[in-house]
Structures are given as C-alpha cells and as structure tokens.
Design a protein around this nucleic acid. Sequence first.
RNA 1: GUGAGUGUAGCUCAAUGGUAGAGCACCGGACUGUGGCUCCGGACGUUGUGGGUUCGAGUCCCAUCACUCACCCCA
Length: 430
Amino acid sequence: MKGRALRAPKGTRDLLPPATGLWAAVEAEVHRIFALYGYREIRTPILEETELFARGVGEATDIVGKEMYTFTDRGGRSLTLRPESTAAVCRAYVEHGMQTLPQPVRLYYLGPQFRYERPQRGRYRQFHQIGAELLGGRGPASDVEILLLLVAFLRRLGFAELTVLLNTVGDAPSRAAYRAALLAYLEPRAAELGEESRRRLGTNPLRILDSKDPAEQELLAAAPRLADHLTPASREHFAAVRAHLDRLGVAYRVEPRLVRGLDYYTNTVFEVVSGDLGAQNAICGGGAYEGLVEELGGPPTYAVGFAIGADRLLEVLPAGSPLRAPGRHRGPVLLAAAGRLPESGDGVSPLTPIAERLRSEGVPVVETGARAPRLFQLAEQLGAPALAFVGEEELARGELSLRELGSREQTRLPFAEAADRLRRYYEEQP
RNA sequence: GUGAGUGUAGCUCAAUGGUAGAGCACCGGACUGUGGCUCCGGACGUUGUGGGUUCGAGUCCCAUCACUCACCCCA
C-alpha cells in the first residue's frame, strides 16, 4: 500500500550535487582562513539542555520565546535543538575549564542550527552557521581581531561589496540608563506603538528601535539616543574599536539603529547585510558579550564572536568567486574502450585495472560503456575534463589516448605521462 | 502566529467545463577507433489531497496540505 509521498520536513531541504561541492569548498575555506587567525574547531552537540538557551540567549528573545525545537526525552529531560551556538561554546568553555588555557581561546564552528519559523527565502528551520568566538580577550583589540577575520573570510570568498555595519549597545550600566530614558519617552506614547512594540516595553524596549513600521520610525526619530547615555567606559570602547578599524583600513558604517536580537551582547555589535537577499538580508551577525560566560557559571570573561548564515552566504556568493573555480568542481575523467577490447574471460573489463591505476595516481575516473557520440554528451553532463580511450594498441603498449574536451585535441601518451596530464585538471590554484 | 500568490510527467510548461499533451531529461535499439548528432522505439501522471456543483471537472466552489513571497524575527 502506497502512502502519501514523503518529503523533507517543512523548512528543511536536501542539498544535492553539484551544490554540495560548493558547500564543501566553502567549508574547506573556513578551515583554512580561520586557522590563519589561530582559530581551532569546536564541535558541540546539536542538542543541549533547554536551560542553556533560556539562560544564555535570554527568556525575552524571540528565539527562546517562540522558535525553539524543544522536547522531553525518555528520561524526562528537557532538550532543545540548538538555535545558535554561542551559548554552547561558552558552556563548553566553562565545562572544560578553558579559562586555564592561554587566553584568549579562539574557537570556530560550523554546522546546522534549528529555529521553528515560517520558511521563506533565506530562512530555513534547519539552517547552517559558520561562527567564531574569541573568549578571554581584552576589549576593543579583540573586537577588531574578530572583525578582521570576518572581513578576510568574506573577501577570500570573492565578496567585494559587503560592508560591516557597526554599533554599540553599551555596557550594562549604559543600557540601564538608556532603558530608563527610552521608557520615559515611549510610555506616554504607548498608544502610538504597535501591539508587538507595546509588549516589548515590558520585556526588551531596546528592540523597539529596529521596528520597520513607518509610524513607529517617525516616533523613534525623536526618541532619546543610546549614544547619549553611554558610560565613559563604553564611549571609549566604541571609539577605540573605530580608531583601530580606521587605522587598519577596514571599511565599516556606523548604524546607530542596529540592535541585536540576542540578550547577551554588550558594547560592540555588528552585522553584514547583502542587498541581493530579499527581506532576510543579514549574512552575518555578531558582537561582544561580557556577561555570558559568567552567567553560565564561569569566571567573568570578555568575549566576542560572530555567526555567518551559510545558506544565505551561498545564495549570494559572487559569480566570480574563486570557490567557483572549475578545478574544484570537475567531474571524473571518463575511461572508455576504443573499438572492441579482448575479453579477459572472467567477466572483468580490462578497463578496470587501468581505472584503478589512474585513481592511485590521484586522477578521478569512472569507466563507461558508452560509445561516441553518446560518450561526449556524457562527458559534458558529468563535467569531465577529458576522455581516456583504451584500444588494443594502447593496451599492448601501456598507453592512453586522451581527448581533452576543451581543446578537442587528442594525444596518445605513455600511462605515467597521461596520468600527470589528467591530474593537472584537478589541482587547485591557491 | 498573520497575509497574499502558486500547485499538471524528474524539469520547463500546454490543454474554451468535453479522449491529459509537448520539449528537455531518462531507458533500449541502429551506429564496432571518436564530437556535442541523427533515426527508431520505450517508460513516464490517482492533474498536491479530500469533498462539492455538473450528464461530464486539470478547468468552477469549499476545505486541507505543500511550496513561494511578505509581515514578525533573524543567519
């Protein structure tokens, strides 16, 4: 009995070749570039205790309030599919006593995250983040270091246009002072706010700032500004970050309205957005978080990090990105018989040992029984750079006839030379 | 959670309320040392699903599901 067709759950998707080749190329680049800045990979569980996110990300956030995949396991524990990874990295930092390692500790991660939301372009229930966290750092210099890594990575992928949007949300005293000032301004005008913003008056008034509602925007234009309520320490912090960036020639734009959705940020916050993404335009978000490690039971620890949305990143990866270089995405060489080859009698094609020798020389190859002209179609569809023919003569002399698809030239070469020539198609240029 | 749009073959799309089709792709054959063909043949669908109206529904109505986009929010 045939039931209804099964499909990937809402908001999840299969990644298929050739797209997976591009994903792998991005991941390889992550490992390479992040290592250049001294970052090492951490892999945390996809499941965590629900309490980690409630405490770490914040009860008042949308993520914790309505977007988590939470369930009770057979032992009665409340577990949650991670909606982000910063809290987990901090938990691991505390759990494994990483404050005893040389500080700062530089970690990066990549992997799936889960949020229960209505899917749309650039937003999935299972999405993928590439993140870096610097823990145990020293303020502005650490903020700048993480931004340098971010910018270097994006540039390496071929992004030329993207700008870092920068702001400060102040330290805890700054925010307390500003919160009071903002409430004093907004509460008498609560009637002019939308339902969602009114609710935030009681939970997270700062988030009202990035409302897109035109009426609210107008109201907010005259609202007190966070910049005017910063403590001297926060003011200095932000000025130092900007001075560093200016001096290093890192392009950024100060965006006074930029407020991040997670509770743990302090002082420096930043985002990278792309105009090619529709409404969900953030490619990367990040900032410093001074209180999180302590909140999770560790020592007071200065930390800063970012998370890049890999799905969105891939969607807007420039056409000219070096990650799209053909050498990274070629199909295997096709190995075919020319004419009729003598049967070995045991049913094994004489091509098979040749294919194996090519593979041991580092040449990707598949055998095919297809004949020209079908052979050439196949080569095109599979992205093969060349065909290798073996006929009776080649077999007798230990040679291969190579037909290169680009130049259309055919050459007959001794096996070793043929292998060298084919291997060159698969070498990456740095 | 709210709103709008769209659902026909693996893909792209046709079909006035009257026999569900084409192109591409796929499989087989012709072609026994070579070019992106050509020719012949094949498989391919509970028209998303369930109801309703009708002599008759891919087409009209209702519901539902999925997808897409937007709101919300974020990566």
